[in-house]
Nucleic acid binder design. Structure first.
Lengths: 297, 297
DNA sequence: CCTCATGGTAAGAAAACCTGATCATCGGAT
DNA sequence: ATCCGATGATCAGGTTTTCTTACCATGAGG
């Protein structure tokens, strides 16, 4: 019952009024004059009421004058929306919600993000950080679109793209007997006071696993862990990226005998797609890390 | 550069989401399912970004979720406008500005308007009143769409539709020598104190015209005029409709020798059209007065 | 394994749309 | 007065868009 107004004919009416004639309007719209005439006529009989006077000149009827500002308003709304969506698709606007594991968040993301906003100055980014499992849950739950984390469990709801390897090493104070070694095997750690942490499960399933059994401490908080290390209470194992290099007295010695690595990469919703802004972020991260592959600072 | 969004495809997207599937949406839209699919696909590639996930079910992409409320908003605006215009055309809404000569405004319009709002309960009417020339100017200037007046000057910008004739008579106090006469000729008025008024020009060009030369007063204000008549200062001529019947002491005696009539009717802008509401008013007035042609109360 | 649901695809038909040429009308110039 | 230029209107034709009909691929549930 209600007539379906199409945008184009409305635009014709505006052009006719603004340009003051069918011919001028046609020129502005890159159409021919008959096209404009017919569009208007079609619109008129759809409304059941003429918009322009019949005689000669392009003069609005009272009804046409009534319609004009309303047409203009609708078209404005349309154009606003069109521009907005276009900006989204062109990545000139939008928002990315992402999450990362703390080591990535503190060691990789600062540079990455500052490069990113240089490339996409109009995109907004929110970065959450937390344990690998926390990141995985955020991605799975759709609360963030991308996670930069290490993979430890296959999940066919999610898809993981590996981007870099991060080797595990031993961390101890600079006056520790092992501190001067260039590399270590697991046997060298026997008898040491080993502090477990959140990343220690990387050793599970390797020859070094027995060491974990002996450890008396299990400290997940990084601040507490480094405090204990600086105090010389014990040693621990960490991936290189998680090694807090800002503490001068701590040393990182690569573990080579059981060579253990974690794989860091981007976690994203399996089949589902990403928002344009998140697509930009994903591509940007992949591109950035392809360049400096294992170049961990 | 900016994509032109058409209303229909947007409606498709809404229907798919609301009905939870392409088939259900197609049913609601009275289309076939492929039509819906193709409409969506067309929209997607116009935007350059998919709205629905590819795999099987009808699930929105993040971009789709972003678009949805905006689509809904635009469609809401569109429908509101469509309904509004439709109401105007169907005379279920709108406004008529009209003007009438005082006699019409006070003697005819009250009944006419009360009948009109019965027939068109949702239309609003503004009624201005003033001299015939004033009315003509309002119509010519487009300040009102219709005038109910008498015609005295042809004007090819305006068009006049005669609706009733209104005979001129003599008005005097009930104790005047002429008061008991059933009708009068112009000779009977010779020597009388004749007060001119705004309608006296109707006598110009008739045998009675010389009488106007002798008249000492020219009173255009109706209140003043009746006051003088009631005071017995003189007599005047008036069309029957302008005769103030609420004054018990005044008498109206038809003038038959020079039978003078004015023609009352609707004045409207010549070629230009009327708003839907004004069209309704025009038709209604014509129809009403055709029924009770000369039945002046 | 079969069945019934989901959407997607392809070819033909229908509708909408645009163009190019032509026409009627009006106003202003000569 | 007449011609000229400009305005919209109109119509036939072809092109593009949009719909439909029929069919295919896939996945969930009995």
């Amino acid at each position: 019952m209600l007539p379906e107004l199409k945008i184009q004919p409305l635009r014709c009416v505006l052009a006719i009024v603004d340009e003051g004639g069918f011919h001028a309007a046609a020129r502005q719209l890159h159409r021919t004059q008959p096209a404009v005439s017919m569009a208007v006529r079609e619109l008129e009989q759809r409304l059941g009421e003429p918009l322009f006077e019949k005689g000669g000149k392009a003069t609005l009827t009272p009804f046409g004058r009534y319609c004009l500002p309303r047409f203009r308003e609708l078209i404005t709304q349309h154009d606003r929306l069109s521009r907005e969506l276009w900006a989204q698709v062109q990545k000139q606007a939008g928002h990315v919600d992402m999450a990362a594991v703390p080591s990535v968040a503190s060691r990789l993301m600062p540079q990455l993000l500052s490069d990113f906003i240089l490339r996409y100055p109009d995109l907004k980014v929110s970065l959450h950080d937390g344990s690998a499992d926390f990141v995985r849950r955020l991605v799975a739950g759709g609360e963030v679109e991308l996670g930069f984390t290490s993979l430890w469990r296959e999940d066919d709801e999610l898809s993981f793209m590996p981007l870099m390897r991060d080797e595990v090493g031993v961390v101890c104070r600079d006056d520790h007997p092992l501190a001067e070694r260039a590399e270590l095997g697991w046997e060298a750690l026997q008898g040491q006071v080993l502090i477990r942490n959140g990343t220690s499960r990387l050793l599970e399933g390797t020859e070094a696993e027995p060491l974990l059994e002996e450890s008396a401490f299990d400290i997940s908080n990084m601040i507490s862990l480094t405090a204990m290390l600086v105090a010389g209470i014990g040693i621990t194992t960490l991936p290189r990226l998680a090694f807090p290099q800002e503490y001068e007295r701590l040393r990182f010695i690569p573990l080579v005998d059981p060579m253990v690595e974690r794989e860091l990469g981007l976690l994203r919703p399996g089949k589902r797609s990403l928002s344009p802004a998140a697509q930009a972020m994903e591509a940007f991260v992949i591109e950035s890390l392809r360049a400096e592959t294992l170049a961990v600072p």
